[in-house]
Design a protein around this nucleic acid. Sequence first.
DNA 1: TTGTAGGCGTTATCAT
DNA 2: ATGATAACGCCTACAA
Lengths: 341, 341
Amino acid sequence: MAVTIKQIAQACNISRGTVDRVLNNRGKVKPETEQLIRETANRLGYVPNPAGKALAAQKKKYVIGILLISEGIRFYDEVIAGIERAEQEIHSYGVGILLKTMRGYQIERQLELIDEMKDQIQFLILNPMNDERIANKIEELTEEGIEVLTINTDIEDSKRISHIGCNYCKSGETAAGLLGLVTNGVAKIGIATGTPMLSGHNQRISGFNTICKDKYPGMEIVDIIETNDDDICAYENTKEMLCKHTDITALYIVAAGTVGVCKAVKEAGLVDKITIIASDLIPETRELIEEGIIKATICQQPFTQGYKAVHMAFQYLISNITPTKELNIIKNEIKILENMN
Amino acid sequence: MAVTIKQIAQACNISRGTVDRVLNNRGKVKPETEQLIRETANRLGYVPNPAGKALAAQKKKYVIGILLISEGIRFYDEVIAGIERAEQEIHSYGVGILLKTMRGYQIERQLELIDEMKDQIQFLILNPMNDERIANKIEELTEEGIEVLTINTDIEDSKRISHIGCNYCKSGETAAGLLGLVTNGVAKIGIATGTPMLSGHNQRISGFNTICKDKYPGMEIVDIIETNDDDICAYENTKEMLCKHTDITALYIVAAGTVGVCKAVKEAGLVDKITIIASDLIPETRELIEEGIIKATICQQPFTQGYKAVHMAFQYLISNITPTKELNIIKNEIKILENMN
DNA sequence: TTGTAGGCGTTATCAT
DNA sequence: ATGATAACGCCTACAA
């Protein structure tokens, strides 16, 4: 049987209340008592019992705050689905969710929304912009006892307790590796990225480029355009690129704008001549794969990202299990028509 | 706040004990009282609180039994890793694991092992042989209140509460779809299956064949050999096949024996001429992918199978959440060198 | 600074 | 057949 607070209390000849005060850092304990208690707790190998904790938490509900830059981005639909599924599971343990979303990349807005939720939550799952002010805010929250878990995008040098998301560099490497297999290592490639301002997009291109250089010297990147994650912009720029580089035989779509890119390819009558590899899987991408226009897409398990993030926050709050970084790197999945679902 | 047993008791003007007896089918309740309680429970939307349940369960520990036909099969290492990870998470809720493994496919042995664990467990995760006697045993357990969840292999017409595993047919389809992309739909294919006695192997071939026929008429299956999941046997038979069919340009390895198949290809000096697609990812397969001999492998997330199975059993025991079939079909993953990690 | 006591929701036991 | 009560482990008032 696992060690309980009661047993520690008995072993120290002291009351349960005091043990609780020490173990939960509530202060108001004599230093020597504190030390005694900590020692015996360690010695006996005390691990808090989540069931007991959850039961007691029913009165003062725990709330996990979540802030996503998701509005207008279809990719996040699945992330949110994962969050909702996890919410169902933890609901009956007296742990709730407070989800806020925002549109676009304004630092001020993100700071504002964090402050709005701050005093209602015990944990924050944050899809952060990579900015020092955000990093500072994370530190501030941490000091107030609210741990922060970054999701999808990370700020490496911040005080966040952990990060959950894919390895964008490997995502690009996977795209290139697959394209190498499909084209037998020979291709003139156009890349459609979202924006150079998002490091995830850049990392994908960088990984893609590495594999081209090192493994498939016959694969050459002839042009890179930006879509600004927008289909109209993607369409215009792809069209122009295809005019300028009539030798293109493959396209790598790094971010959103997939529909626009494919529209340009269709109009140019190049569907059969160009191998298209995309990123992520929204319903539109699914259709394009079914039509045979896109051959494959590299996904980052958005549902799992949302589910696991909430699950980890729950574990932290209820079981005092601190997330280990290594387990949270979501694998990049290759999806083709046959294994889409 | 959620509805509790106490509230139902108050609403019915009756004691908590009686409500518990009804809700947990312990008998010894007057029919009319029972009906009253059931009605109000439904009316109020009673959902048992897992934290309370878990806490009360600490006295009489729950045990989840697991029986795998895993000895000598490397694939199951990852399944067991997933089981162990889930075990850690549920350990502190007072739920334990009893894992037994066996080697080879003797029905009698499986029945024997089930009987051995029967009276120590409240739930069974079973990797079953597809036999009527096993199906009968599952029914027997179910009637005694021990629910059974099949893992990796299913017995469709049995009383198991649910199944977790991949869709083997789609696994084969995915292999064919990928091979179609890589070979541009033109290939003479040799298939190395394990044994026609395992339906999973047959389903993979069937799915593979479907895609060849329907989507890539230029892909022709020229021969099928058996490996008996054994590398030596695989080597011999592959060697013979490659002699007999010198026009082979691709191999699909359906089951174990991967190392043997590849050895034969290497010795025949055909590494550069034959595109090999395998199934599952054991360390040896990983090495062969790193060497560039195998181009891709179709995986079925063994870790997730183990983890989820235990998680579902736990949910069932503690939260009364009955697993829904749909959520448990593990997706087939395409792994190439770049996304293996 | 420390101790006590009651309650979170469920289950088991003992008495009625 | 039913009721009352005491656990399970933790937290939080309030009392000392």
